[in-house]
């Protein structure tokens, strides 16, 4: 595989993963710029979530390379990738139900990540201040001491986004952040996304084309593990191939 260094934040080249012969992602290449918001769309089974899994190390690639700030990610462990500056939100809200909102955020605070560090971790002013700041951003500052279990679906989604924000990642990956949200929650989320994407790159998987058009710099359409089209939301919507396989359904 080519291993040229680039100016992109993320450079995916020739990425392939096969599960017992089935190629869920097939020779995929794409590049994400600094401060770009990239949306990945595609029908079910197109390999969208698998691409995120590959980038964050949850699934190991069969072939190809993923470079984040010119660092090869495919050989790294999950926690190393996170520490390098890649944050990932899961499709279903993944928060700790037995812990409070405060504790959820505190655990995500990027300090004391070793065993010893966790044993000697202190809630100092910096932690309190950062948790406070993030909780305001994600509309949960009133609920700091509520258990995660008791939050609504939308609030859980925000909390998980907050847990990523507190790590201040350079690349943020969101898997269907507005799925299952009410209209007003959706609006608030769009607003939230706009504020958090100011100085970082973001990859979003989303189905809702209206929402996509609202936030995307560039859209990548996946179909059967390959790129079908790439460009602005307007451009992609007009592509006859895209209309056939995706919008046509």
């Amino acid at each position: 595989m080519s291993s040229s260094n680039t100016d992109f934040v993320l450079a995916v080249e020739g990425l392939t993963v096969s599960f017992d012969g089935f190629k869920a992602v097939n020779d995929l290449s794409f590049y994400v710029d600094k401060n770009e918001i990239r949306v990945i769309v595609g029908p079910n089974g197109a390999g969208k979530t698998t691409v995120l899994d590959l980038i964050c190390g949850r699934t190991k690639a069969t072939e190809g390379s993923i470079k984040f700030r010119n660092k090869e990610l495919t050989k790294m462990k999950e926690h190393q990738i996170v520490r390098a500056g890649v944050g990932r939100k899961f499709q279903t809200p993944s928060i700790y139900g037995d812990l409070t909102v405060f504790e959820n955020l505190e655990i995500s605070f990027p300090r004391g990540r070793s065993v010893f560090g966790a044993l000697t971790f202190k809630r100092d002013a910096e932690v309190l201040q950062r948790v406070d700041e993030i909780s305001r951003m994600i509309f949960l500052d009133e609920l700091l001491h509520t258990r995660g279990d008791l939050l609504s679906h939308g609030q859980k989604q925000w909390l998980e986004i907050g847990m990523l924000l507190i790590q201040d990642p350079e690349l943020l990956m969101l898997d269907e952040p507005v799925a299952g949200m009410s209209v007003s929650e959706r609006r608030k989320t769009a607003e939230l996304l706009r504020t958090i994407t100011k100085d970082r790159s973001v990859i979003v998987i989303e189905h809702d084309m209206q929402f996509v058009a609202e936030i995307a710099d560039k859209v990548t359409v996946l179909h059967q593990g390959k790129i079908l089209a790439e460009g602005t939301a307007e451009h992609v919507k007009q592509d006859p191939k895209v209309i056939e396989v995706y919008l046509g359904h």
């Binding site: 599960f19 017992d20 089935f22 869920a24 698998t50 899994d53 949850r58 699934t59």
Partner: peptide, 10 residues
Amino acid sequence: QGLFSLKVRR
């Protein structure tokens, strides 16, 4: 995962 098991998509 044992001797006989398939690699599956998670």
